Computed example of a mutant assay.
Amino acid sequence: MMKNVSVFNVSVPQQVLDDLKNRLNNTRWPGEAEGSGWHFGTSEAYLKELVHYWVTQYDWRKQEAALNKYPQYMANVNGVKIHFQYIKGKGKHSKPLLLTHGWPDSYYRFHKIIPLLTEGDQSFDLIIPSIPGFGFSDKIALPSEAVADLWKVLMTENLRYAKFYAAGGDVGMGITKALASKYPDVVAGVHFTDIGYPMGQEDPNTMTEAEKQFAGFVQQWWYSEGAYAMVHSTKPQSLAYGLNDSPVALTAWILSFINAGAPPEIIEQAFGGKDELLTNIMIYWTTQTIGTSVRMYKADAIAQWGGAQPLKKSSVPAGIAIFPREAQFPREWAERFVNVVSFQKMAEGGHFAALEVPTVFAEALRSFFYSIN
């Protein structure tokens, strides 16, 4: 029996969709430098093509029905409304697995792996929440540790699991790492696709040569591709006005990150096509949560630079799968933060592995979590 939980279904008012179409049709395009492609940011040529598809072919009601295919709920967790999917595994001894998304995706990040992880003898009860400030959860921006506190209550009090497993990447990585550090008594195992980045606070005398090379790569990446995070962490409110008012601006900003460090074709490949790409964007647009989602970066920055005590290294068994189009950190970097018992270099996939290579990603989760107690 779940506590303080009610059934939820996605249902967007028609006037929101009508308003969206009007805004798309009345976009003021800025123009772009001839032959610039993606070198100056999101390609206007590609964006115009996508918007044309959005207006003429994309069917939100069809996608809305697909979102409602799996059971969804709303929980009151310490006064914060948390939206989550909850799909029971079909095996006799399914393991409870909490999956946490990142930015600029949403709980939709995991929709392809739901059938892969809930079937068979080695199945999972999947709990897939929307982070506060994202999607259908409360519009409030919280730092990662505070979200981890909510996840612990959701799993142990609202859903009444004595122990559970957790996985996450990107923003979800920080939340999952905090869960493992703060609540090793209830978190039985964790899995990551990234583990955080050197930020210049590290003592170089304690770093291996591989870690120093990784730090150099990260510094170069931030200079070339990190503009989004710097804006989110410093001036999120200034950004939010435009993104919340213009669906094309919102889409351009999200696409610019998805494209970072990857060839343009990855944009649609990562999400499975235009419909999936637009559905993820629609979750931000229809809930008006782009402002609170980017504000979370500021909340984390304040916590990190405001004198908060760093998390202690977790003792919880941790599995790591590094995909080729992800920052290639060495094992010893991960061992600074978590108890690494499995460290895999994957053959294909990138930052959005659950969407790009769902079968590979699902098998990585299954093989790890069923290899530990």
Rank of each mutant, 00 (worst) to 15 (best):
M1V: 13
N4G: 08
S6N: 03
S6W: 00
V7I: 12
V10F: 13
V10P: 08
V12E: 09
P13S: 00
D18C: 00
N25I: 08
N26W: 02
P30N: 06
E34R: 13
E44W: 05
Y46H: 13
K48W: 03
V51N: 02
D59Y: 01
R61N: 09
K62L: 04
V80S: 08
V80W: 06
F84I: 12
K90D: 12
G91Y: 08
G91A: 05
K95I: 14
H101T: 05
S106D: 00
I114L: 13
L126M: 01
I127T: 09
I127K: 03
P129D: 07
S130F: 01
P132E: 10
D138Q: 14
K139R: 15
A141F: 10
L142G: 04
L142D: 07
A146L: 03
A146W: 04
D149C: 08
L154F: 15
N158Q: 10
R160P: 00
G169E: 02
V171R: 15
M173Q: 14
M173I: 05
S181R: 07
Y183R: 05
V187M: 08
A188V: 06
F192V: 00
Y197M: 06
P198T: 04
N205F: 07
E211F: 03
W222D: 06
W222N: 14
A227G: 09
A227L: 04
A227F: 02
M230G: 04
T234Y: 00
Q237R: 12
L239M: 10
A252D: 04
W253Q: 14
G261S: 13
E265N: 13
G272F: 06
L277E: 01
L277G: 03
W285I: 03
W285V: 03
Q288R: 07
T292S: 15
K298I: 01
A299P: 09
A301H: 13
G306L: 08
A308W: 05
P310V: 10
L311H: 04
K312I: 01
P324E: 14
R325G: 07
R325L: 15
E326V: 12
Q328A: 14
E335H: 07
R336D: 02
V341H: 04
F343Q: 02
K345H: 14
M346S: 08
E348P: 06
L365M: 08
R366N: 01
N373Q: 14
